[in-house]
Design a protein around this nucleic acid. Structure first.
Length: 183
DNA sequence: ACGAGGATGCTCT
DNA sequence: GAGCATCCTCGTC
């Protein structure tokens, strides 16, 4: 079993499925919430027309060009926040979009933040809201014990691979990975 | 269960 | 000015 750091330093198509089952924890305002990651997508920088980094660095996507383990948070449709974990060598701008999880710690707080009791952490926007992740966390480092931290978990038995959701370019690439994960 | 449509504001052309 | 890596509500089946 590779270390989290080794996974994040490797190829994005290997890192994405390897993140399934691992935990993502936030500690915001002293409150801890955590999920087991169940749904991700790979984006491969300049090699991927669907990536925000396809046309090179801009103020928005700058975090993607940094070190692996960086948290790239962007605003989606003017309303929601979505987060990625930067993967691969610095400057490549590959990243894994976190699209869903299963609550493991702090479900009550997630209910409060979401304003409802169901669909707490399914979908990238909902996941960020449940964990309290916003644009101010863009650039945080998830390797280590910061505000947002990636942790070990249980490797899922089976992983489903499909096309990515909600994109109009590179729709043929099967770069979405989904699994039933243990809590 | 599933699909259509609107909200909403930033980013880049 | 167009186009979003989305989500919710309400309609229909």
């Amino acid at each position: 079993m590779s270390s989290l750091r080794a996974i994040l330093e490797g190829p994005v198509l290997e890192a994405a499925p390897a993140l399934l089952g691992r935990r993502l924890r936030s500690r915001i305002g002293g409150v801890i919430t955590e999920v087991a990651i169940s749904e991700v997508e790979a984006y491969d920088g300049a090699n991927d027309p669907a990536s925000h980094a396809f046309r090179g660095p801009t103020p928005r996507n700058l975090t993607m060009f940094g070190k692996p383990g960086g948290l790239y948070v962007y605003r989606s449709y003017g309303i929601h926040w979505c987060m990625n974990i930067v993967v691969g060598e610095e400057g490549r701008a590959a990243a894994v979009l976190l699209r869903g999880g299963v609550p493991t710690v702090g479900a009550e707080e997630m209910v409060r933040r979401r304003g409802r009791e169901d669909h707490l952490t399914d979908g990238p926007g909902n996941l960020c809201q449940a964990l309290g992740v916003t644009g101010e966390h863009d650039g945080e480092q998830v390797l280590g014990r910061g505000v947002i931290s990636l942790r070990k978990g249980t490797t899922p038995a089976e992983i489903e691979r499909t096309a990515r959701i909600g994109i109009s370019k590179a729709t043929e690439s099967q770069w979405r990975f989904v699994a039933a994960v243990a809590t």
